[in-house]
Nucleic acid binder design. Structure first.
Lengths: 134, 134
DNA sequence: TCTTGACCCTGTAGTTGCTATAGGGTGCAT
DNA sequence: ATGCACCCTATAGCAACTACAGGGTCAAGA
């Protein structure tokens, strides 16, 4: 299987696959006589894993960790659980941050009376009292 | 006022201030005899504006746009309103995406029975059926 | 006077996770 | 033999900073 087919199958760009190889996330495949990369089922499996984890928002470092964990099949699942839970906590934090931000921005927009900039509440709220400095 | 004081006042790193200058977001200040940057009230105002907008999640490009708009004080406020509303929509999208992701991840974690990796639902869910490929 | 230390300067490279380009080689069909 | 789709490497670019390296400046203390 050459790189283009692997790319189509996993909905990944060709360049991204080569990038994953370069950073050591995807093992180097064999080469054909014409120096084309030649992938097998194991590569497909591993890349699918990576993509799925990335879709779930894991960072590449977290993916690397999950891959290492999953390679050692005798190890307890709890390490995986820990990584996943840490990620979940990060997501919750991000959602909370965005919500706070949303509230603030919404309030600002609500005050906009569509008048001139000099009366604009949004601009006013952004600047400090020294805003007339230029 | 030298760069360190400006940095402390606006809770910005010194390097970031120089970076904003380099990309043309913050105008070049005068220099002292010793070639130190010398900032005034206008710079403080502008940097505060930038930081506040960044805290609200605006991109540097959006900040640039807001700064241009706010400089033209005769212009209508509605352009500002438009930028802000577009940003709000982006935030809503991000929140929705994160929530969907959170749900999925949460479900995965709920299935983890703390057994061996070979039985781990999380690993299983990440890999395709070909997971036994290595 | 000399030196210490906190501050400042420029310029460049690193971060994350790719994406895009340049400039070429391979393989198959017409 | 020539076109075309595909592949190769290497490098640079994106956001928005951050972190050096290798220096200069300035005020205070011994």
């Amino acid at each position: 299987m050459q790189i283009g087919e692997l790319a189509r199958t996993t909905a990944t760009k060709v360049e991204t696959i080569r990038f994953y190889e370069k950073i050591g996330l995807l093992p180097e495949p064999g080469r054909t006589s014409g120096n084309y990369r030649d992938y097998g089922a194991a590569h497909l499996a591993r890349l699918s894993f990576i993509r799925r984890a990335r879709d779930l928002g894991f960072t590449l470092d977290q993916v690397r960790e999950l891959l290492t964990l999953s390679d050692d099949r005798s190890r307890s699942c709890s390490a995986v659980d820990t990584v996943a839970r840490a990620h979940l906590a990060q997501i919750d934090q991000k959602i909370a941050d965005l919500r706070a931000l949303r509230r603030e921005l919404d309030e600002l927009i609500g005050q906009c009376s569509q008048g001139a900039i000099s009366d604009c509440r949004i601009i006013e709220a952004l600047g400090p009292s020294a805003q007339n400095g230029h």
